[in-house]
Amino acid sequence: MSVTNKSPAVLQVRDLACERDGRRLFEGLDFTLGAGAAIQVKGGNGAGKTTLLRTLIGSTSDYSGEILWRGQVFPQGLRAMREALLYIGHRGGVRGGLTPLENLTWYGATKTSALEALERVDLFGFEDSLCNSLSAGQNRRVALARMFLPQAPCLWILDEPLTALDVAGVAALEKQMTTHLGGGGSLLLTSHQPLNIMGLNFVDLSDCLVEESFSDTGGEHVFN
């Protein structure tokens, strides 16, 4: 299986196989992510979507195969990759003891740009309340506000960015992603929901299942 783009390769995966606790999650995974391209990783619960993302950002080194950042193989390319990376995981990286504004400035934003980003994610007026007191969806928005900061890194890797977001939030996010892609950025994300993004490619991990392994995930559930 292969997803190719005409634009120059940013992130390349060759014959990747990951295992977890001695169980092969997927193998023979190949894809190329170009500049201005977006990939949505699909697969049921336990198919290894998060593991794939964590492997790509270099948090896990238990894999076989090759990962290349602009033609440079990991782990040599890892450092350069991290300088261009925006990763938002399951855990959003939002400190409960800080306000949304402080959280964004911790990520290096200036005060004005942070306020602007918060406004774009519809958190205007909440910038000085503690994140502990905000709802799950609002905390998610604080995490995602990093995508609205100026000079955002060129590679976005997002793990289930749409969880706990309402319809308007999803729409704003899709719009921002399209802008990012239009500016030559790249996007790799997992989601159980369909996304309305032009030219979105798909990588389905269930196509790369290991043959003799039997799925013990108990069927696929999609929660909306």
Binding site: S59, R82, Y87, G89, G92, G93, V94, W106
Partner: peptide, 16 residues
């Protein structure tokens, strides 16, 4: 612990 639970530790580890 706090940084681990809210994911900021992960973000710190991702910094170059």
């Amino acid at each position: 612990r706090g940084d681990f639970e809210d994911g900021t530790l992960e973000q710190l580890a991702l910094l170059p």
